[in-house]
Design a protein around this nucleic acid. Structure first.
Lengths: 312, 312
DNA sequence: GATTGCCGTGAAACCGATTACATATCAAGA
DNA sequence: TCTTGATATGTAATCGGTTTCACGGCAATC
């Protein structure tokens, strides 16, 4: 039996010895059917291969395992990108007990259908979807970055953003603009914003674009570390020195950022903790407790060697 | 009904309209119970947060999704490392239809218990476990690396390995020794092998160790890219130039290796493909077909800027 | 001594699909 | 016309647990 406390001692021992003897193992599927649950939580990631998400997943797995729940992973990029039905068919109470969405590009409709299990948004969020969110303080982070650069005497700062329409891009852009305003900087030139896609490659391409400018910015803030690393690579190969000629700031503090040359100044966000909190919020939701709608995790500035005082 | 072909057209349409009307969704758990399956494959990874594995997982997910199977991920590092029971309790036919092991440190006993589903080993392998393996050609890869360095005139090559007892370390070490022998090099000094743990940090520490040597090697081969990157960071900060003073070769060709400074010469292994093949091998095993015991995937040398001719 | 109440035990219903089987329908051949 | 065969439909059994319920036994109270 499943509840050892309610049967007599003798019976329990007899059962246990029988279990050991016959090598019986419980059928999880049967139990789940009866209990009307699945025993698993689904994580929707944009790109499993991206190390950024794997750390968050690790935090999620951490909490889930403590509760005896499985972690199901679904890559939203795999398969027909045109077929949201593909993902939609997984969003059923019979597929998982709850969903953690890490992809802000999905349609909110997917999660508003009759049989959809509880949803929590982590890291990114979907416009028009009123599910609890667990986010890093993106605006504060980019604000910090700009304050840091402005404090070093930089007046001409370029912002290398993520994809347009991405929720992270939006909030980090807002933080940048607030930071610029607070520093009394008024940077209006069109070429002081470049839109990337969070990839190393797009950082590299941005470098080429910057190198071709008649007047180059003296500092660049990148919406993530990978673009910053690609950027530093491109700038250095183009004959510019970081930070002497151009300062670079990233965002995320991925492990690699401490080991680049030069080591990258960046904004630390606690991704494993973010995953953990998202998982806990979801568990609370599954148990019926309505949690807070939005949880913002603090970020902090990590100063390394990719930034220095403006020489001018 | 599940098989639309065997019923009359009219009946089928009636059923379909009823489904649309009532918003019926099939209960996967019930089907799985009846069909004596789980509909999911379990991946055992040593450290989910490690980007190396997430690419392999991505390849696995790719194949699985085509077959309508879910990907369950279990981090073998999470929880009590002392409690193999924790992992063992997942290795049941009622938990998953098959297992892909990416962690070579697990005990073979875990997979030889009565109710364990089919197992495939990918990337790493477990000594004493006779389950199909899908591996990169590790020995050939490190052999290639040594040939490359020897061809550039290096006579004094240090090998920065992975952890002792790790299956990758063993085979890569073998390839190195074969390569050295083929090149007619006889490097016997104890300090020409350093044992790391595949982490950035351990690469950095190796650099400190090398910098303190009275005679430094002219080239270093690292068992993975991350250690190579950590190493280059340490060497550069210690005032040595890569590749002018020391050449460095990595292994894996992670995305980042193309964007380090200098870009890293390394051995490319197709990790997504490795995941795909592992998944396909497992599927064949589940369907009862006995596949080949060991599949070796080719690797290739990618020459970038971290290696150059020995000045001497 | 009889009633009340509690507790442990065993049997039966239930979860929701698949699958096997029996029955009904119909067309073709004898 | 009757039989045979094939196909289609409806019904019941099954997967393996959990949960409910009724029953038997025992102790305490009146």
């Amino acid at each position: 039996m499943s509840n050892p406390a309610i049967v007599a001692e003798a019976t329990r021992i007899a059962v246990e010895s029988a279990i050991a003897e016959t090598g019986y193992t419980l059928n999880v599927t049967a139990r789940n059917l009866r209990q009307q649950q699945v025993g698993a939580v689904l994580a929707l990631v944009p790109k499993l291969a991206n190390p950024f998400f794997s750390v968050i997943l690790s935090g999620i797995a951490d909490v889930l395992r403590g509760k005896g729940l499985n972690l199901l992973v679904l890559d939203t990029m795999v398969g027909d990108a045109n077929a949201p039905q593909g993902i939609g068919s997984y969003l059923t109470r019979s597929h998982s007990d709850g969903v953690i969405v890490l992809d802000g590009r999905l349609s909110p409709d997917l999660f508003q259908r009759p049989n959809c299990p509880p949803v929590v948004q982590a890291c990114e969020w979907i416009k028009g979807l009123s599910a609890p969110k667990v986010l890093a303080d993106n605006a504060a982070g980019s604000n910090l970055a700009i304050q840091h650069l402005a404090g070093l005497g930089h007046h001409d700062i370029l912002h290398l953003t993520g994809p347009l329409m991405n929720s992270l891009t939006t909030s980090r852009r807002a933080g940048v603009q607030q930071g610029l305003a607070e520093a009394g900087l008024n940077i209006t030139a069109d070429d002081r914003v470049i839109h990337g896609d969070f990839s190393l490659r797009s950082g590299h391409q941005a470098a080429l674009q910057i190198l071709s400018m008649t007047t180059m910015p003296t500092a660049v803030f990148c919406d993530n570390d990978e673009m910053a690393i690609g950027l530093m690579n491109g700038l250095t190969q183009g004959g510019r020195r970081v930070p002497q000629d151009i300062s670079v700031v990233g965002f995320d503090n991925i492990e690699m950022s401490a080991y680049t040359l030069p080591p990258l100044t960046t904004i630390r966000q606690h991704r494993a903790e973010l995953g953990r909190q998202a998982a806990e919020t979801l568990l609370a939701l599954i148990e019926g407790k309505e949690g807070e709608e939005e949880k913002i995790l603090p970020v902090e500035l990590v100063i390394r060697d990719s930034t220095s005082a403006h020489p001018g």
